[in-house]
Design a protein around this nucleic acid. Structure first.
Lengths: 205, 205
DNA sequence: TGCCCACTCAATCATTTGATTGATTGAGGT
DNA sequence: ACCTCAATCAATCAAATGATTGAGTGGGCA
């Protein structure tokens, strides 16, 4: 029996339930995408990493297209968990912005690979409608969240009255995802950017 | 003789100079990258589009890696031409920011495909040192240009005294390239973002 | 004229790669 | 004990793909 990288549940069984296999496949695929990009994703490599035969892989995930969609769904699930972690009710706009920034810091720290995969998926979304349908809503959701924060913050006096919530959200998500994506961005530079974003939108006394 | 898509110079000759061929190859490769992505780039397709044999292609560009590097250089050249078009001397920080914004509008209008290819190249730069060496300096150059503008603008009173030039440049280039890259960004949204960037950094009277 | 060499092509190779086929295994139900 | 079927694998296919080989071809120069 090959390397059992998932030492939980029932290691005694040679068979896995279909769901567990699909999860394992998604995980392996994500690792390979991080290492070699979507371009370098090979069904054989995934099967090898999971420790199953190529045919078995095809049994669980019929085509490569479905496999990419599976990865996209997996990323979306992670994103949702991350987004729903901290409740926002009853906070001011500025407080919520701080929370959103903290979530971003946490994400860069704890799941840095997600944005790498996400970038590749967004790239592919231009040509793959299935992926687009899964991935683009994620970014829209993230952006709309900043929009809401800015609207609230304008109303409660946290932010400039002349702040355009849509544009502010676009700038913020754009700047954050771009700085996250780039290989030459240091953590301290991200902190600089976050601080500057705050100054850019905050209401000056 | 197949489709001569380049009706200039010397259509009477069956031979092209090596340089012309390489240019034609780069052009064809760029088209294909726009259509199918770097992942879908095939030497055969390039050769077919240029109207030459695969072996001839390999004669001019020895390997696929060299081909990608050629495309990267080609993009860099376009970028340089675009960047150097308008002289900046003797303007205030705000005026230069306007000019930079105009250049950006012009780029999105007249060479929208460049950012698509550039994004793919940046993506690949994480794994390909050759491409990284060509592509990453471009972004650094663009960013440093905004840095200079912000420094000047702080000194001449255009921008907020508490503006961090580095962070501002990061935010600006990040927001612009991200909004340019996304397939669901309309021109009016870019205008909104540009206007908001101005409000974000400008000195309030 | 004759040679050199940049340039070009048809044919072919060696791998890679997504997918399929047909047989086998074993857990759970009756 | 027997049956069923999800799950698994070895073997193989067909197409795609980057690269090479070897044979020209013609313009320019001695």
């Amino acid at each position: 029996m090959k390397a059992d990288s998932n030492p939980c549940a029932l290691p005694a069984s040679k068979r896995e339930s279909g769901d567990d296999r699909r999860i394992a496949v998604a995980k392996a695929a994500r690792q390979i995408i991080v290492e070699k990009g979507l371009e370098g994703l090979r069904t054989r490599d995934i099967a090898a990493r999971v420790g199953i035969n190529i045919a078995t892989l095809h049994y669980h995930v019929p085509t490569k297209e479905a496999l990419v969609a599976l990865v996209a769904e997996s990323i979306r699930d992670d994103f949702r968990v991350q987004a729903m972690r901290h409740p926002r009710v009853g906070k001011t706009g500025l407080e919520q912005l701080y929370m959103e920034f903290d979530d971003f810091r946490e994400a860069t720290r704890e799941m840095p690979e997600v944005i790498i995969i996400l970038t590749e998926l967004v790239e592919r979304a231009r040509r793959d409608a299935t992926v687009a349908e899964i991935v683009l809503p994620m970014h829209r959701f993230w952006r709309s969240r900043f929009e809401d924060i800015f609207r609230l913050g304008i109303a409660d006096g946290s932010f400039r009255p002349d702040l355009d919530p849509e544009a502010g959200a676009m700038i913020t998500t754009g700047a954050l995802s771009d700085s996250w994506r780039r290989p030459d961005t240091s953590p301290s530079m991200i902190e600089q950017a976050l601080a500057e974003l705050e100054r850019a939108f905050i209401r000056k006394s």
